[in-house]
């Protein structure tokens, strides 16, 4: 009962395009800070953008807007997710399948991940939620 009273947003990141990562993180963080429960699942190529080395070097795939965001040095998706986590109910998960395929460990990812999980766990979290796929 109680679970249904808080609207839940599930955001699935598939792409490593900076614009998609940014848009999903922006919506999710503001939603969490506005009282929604937000669960983010990062899988496939999107995981690559969350690797520590890529975040440190700002090594991202961009289009026109993404390039200008880097140019203007605006806070990027890791900053947005951090804000959401600090000021709301936002959890970030990595996909165990893609991690296994690539041989990546949770420690290779930026320190914002709550856990690395499989599809069944995520489906449980996403049940009854609004789902956004980026």
């Amino acid at each position: 009962m109680e679970q249904q009273q808080v609207p839940t947003l599930a955001i699935i990141f598939l792409s490593k395009d900076l614009e998609k990562l940014h848009a999903g993180s922006l919506v999710g963080s503001v939603a969490a800070m506005s009282g929604m429960k937000v669960r983010m699942f990062v899988t496939m190529n999107a995981l690559e953008a969350f690797l520590k080395e890529n975040v440190e070097k700002q090594n991202f795939q961009t289009g026109t807007v993404g390039a200008e965001m880097l140019n203007k040095n605006i806070p990027l998706f890791p900053d947005l997710i951090k804000e959401g986590k600090e000021n709301g109910d936002l959890h970030l998960y990595g996909c165990s399948m893609a991690m296994d395929v690539m041989g990546w460990k949770q420690g290779d990812l930026i320190d914002l991940f709550d856990d690395v999980i499989g599809v069944s766990s995520f489906l449980g979290m996403a049940q009854g939620a609004q789902v956004i796929t980026m």
Binding site: L26, S29, V30, I74, P75
Partner: peptide, 16 residues
């Protein structure tokens, strides 16, 4: 000087 959602996020934190 801060772009969306910077000002909003600052406001949310302050209101909280």
């Amino acid at each position: 000087g801060s772009f969306c959602p910077g000002p909003l996020m600052e406001l949310i934190k302050a209101v909280k």
